[in-house]
Nucleic acid binder design. Structure first.
Length: 487
RNA sequence: GACCCAUUAGUGUAAGUGGUUAACACAUCGGCCUUUCAAGCCGAAGAGUACGGGUUCAAGUCCCGUAUGGGUCACCA
């Protein structure tokens, strides 16, 4: 096999979608697995759909999930430019060569005529298809720039009989009847090439060996193969990736919540987790291990593991993967990642002691599905509880006889502690409970909600230890005051 | 409508060229651990492979049909 060269070639028409990045990731993993090259090309041939800033967002989405561009837009390389709108001369050159050889022709059919033609064909229950009206009119080609004045396009003189078969690496041979195919437009009246044309020309000149793209291109691939044949070029290998559907097996849409990469970032999904999840969307490794870092993904990725049925986007699974990654992170790193989420929830982290925050996150990380959950779940390490969880407060405080007495004696005993650590705090609580003749759990639960405002969380002694004597005492005193108000 | 692609427990995926009682993960349920909630560990239940034919000693695996879902038939990509 030649040295692998693959490309990710999105059009800058909107925000980067999970499907886009999944395609990019598969290409990237394949390239890296074979020590090949990952090329990033921008297909901006539709000027009406161009969205300002889209290219930058695409680039940063790739960067965020850890895909490095070896060659292409923003990275450079010897097959550039990698922006199709800057390669117009090339397309013009190839198109005129094709016209000269009778493989393409200028067509000045009006849009109205084409619409009418399609309407009639539809009425007659025929396949909508260009009828070759201009195929033999030999309308002169005066260059791309003249096309709009001529109100004309360039069409491919496609083979009209026989069959075309191409090999899809995953599905095997796929055959189409040439009569089904059309004299597709190669260059539009605005002088820009169509996807079908530019994609073939660029893949050829950029020496692309494998085209890995969404399976919506299965039906248009025979047209591309015809173009390669007409130009006497060798076609690359084709690999069509399954579409991504939602759990209702419908096309993933905005209504499903999040389809754009940026939204996952906002949700507190780690890039490593999203990448891992995306890799599993339409691909499965030979072994059963599902948590894989980039290195492992590259090592294990192979075309034979790609699925051909639709891949279903399972958000629960993504969150599970995310929690696995969060739990495996060192507290310090987790804190850095969570800090923006803490800030936007109104928690001031500017003068937090780093080792302290680190420990807090170490305690919490096995119960943190996403970074977005951090403010709510670790908040009490950064500020006293503003309110107490209603049900828990009733059950663990209001319904417990003499609870104020219990807490008060616990406070007194804690105050007299010389050495404050997890063990001394624990034995202090257990001794207090014993002298009060209550089960330790009564005191534990009451202390937990008093100090954190919550009924769930890490082990109480870890919490008390980290919070420190001063905080613990003042929080419990505050809780006692609140009890007094309510009794 | 025509053409092309797909269809395995609730969900996602595995089962190289057809060959033991269809495997793994998520979710679910139970147990252990424990002050709670998670995590972790152990275990359970759950499909006979969309449906109907056929080929074969033997079929998720090959062939045909039907159903369902999806894609393409643009001067979009």
């Amino acid at each position: 096999m030649d040295r692998v060269r693959v490309r990710f070639a999105p059009s800058p028409t909107g925000l980067p979608h999970v499907g886009n990045i999944r395609t990019a990731l598969f290409n990237y993993l394949f390239a890296r697995h074979h020590q090949g090259t990952f090329v990033f090309r921008i297909e901006d041939t539709d000027r009406s759909r161009f969205v300002e800033g889209a290219i930058e967002k695409l680039t940063s989405a790739l960067e965020w999930v850890g895909i490095e561009i070896d060659e292409g837009y923003s990275a450079g390389g010897k097959f550039g430019p990698y922006l199709q709108s800057r390669r117009l001369d090339l397309y013009e050159d190839i198109a005129s060569q094709m016209i000269a050889k009778g493989k393409a022709y200028v067509c000045n059919c009006s849009v109205q005529r084409l619409e009418q033609l399609r309407a009639e064909q539809k009425k007659a229950k025929l396949n909508p298809k260009y009828d070759g009206h201009c195929r033999h009119k030999n309308i002169p080609f005066k260059g791309l720039e003249q096309l709009s004045q001529q109100n004309a396009v360039i069409r491919f003189a496609a083979p009209q009989e026989g069959q075309i078969t191409y090999n899809d690496k995953l599905r095997g041979e796929i055959t189409f009847d040439n009569r089904q195919l059309d004299d597709i437009v190669l260059v539009k009246a605005d002088g820009f090439p169509t996807y079908n044309f530019a994609n073939v020309v660029d893949d050829h000149f950029m020496n692309i060996t494998h085209v890995m793209r969404g399976d919506e291109f299965i039906s248009s691939t025979p047209k591309h193969v015809h173009l390669y044949n007409a130009l006497d070029w060798t076609a690359p290998e084709f690999i069509h990736l399954p579409i991504i559907l939602n759990q209702q097996k419908k096309r993933l849409s905005k209504r499903d919540g999040s389809v754009y990469i940026g939204q996952y970032r906002e949700m507190g999904i780690l890039p490593s987790a999203l990448r891992n999840f995306l890799a599993l969307l339409g691909w499965s490794p030979k072994q059963n291990e599902e948590i894989m870092d980039m290195k492992q993904l590259i090592e294990r990725f192979s075309i034979s593991g790609i699925t051909i049925h639709p891949a279903i986007f399972d958000l629960d699974k993504l969150i599970w993967i995310n929690s696995q990654y969060i739990a495996s992170l060192p507290g310090e790193e987790l804190f850095n990642l969570a800090e923006p989420f803490m800030r936007s929830a109104g928690i001031d982290t500017s003068d937090i002691d780093l080792p302290y925050a680190e420990q807090a996150f170490d305690l919490l990380k096995s119960r943190l599905p996403t970074l977005q959950d951090a403010p709510e779940r670790v908040g009490y390490f950064f500020h006293p509880p503003e309110q107490y969880e209603q049900e828990g407060w009733e059950k663990r405080i209001l319904k417990v006889d003499h609870v104020q007495t219990y807490l008060s004696s616990f406070i007194e005993n804690l105050k007299s502690l010389d050495c404050w650590n997890r063990d001394t705090v624990e034995s202090c609580l257990r001794e207090t409970a014993e002298s009060l003749k209550v089960k330790p759990s009564i005191l534990i639960h009451a202390a937990r909600i008093s100090v954190t405002g919550m009924t769930t969380g890490p082990g109480l002694f870890d919490i008390l230890n980290l919070l420190g004597k001063e905080q613990v005492v003042s929080r419990m005193e505050k809780a006692i005051k609140k009890i007094a108000e309510q009794v």
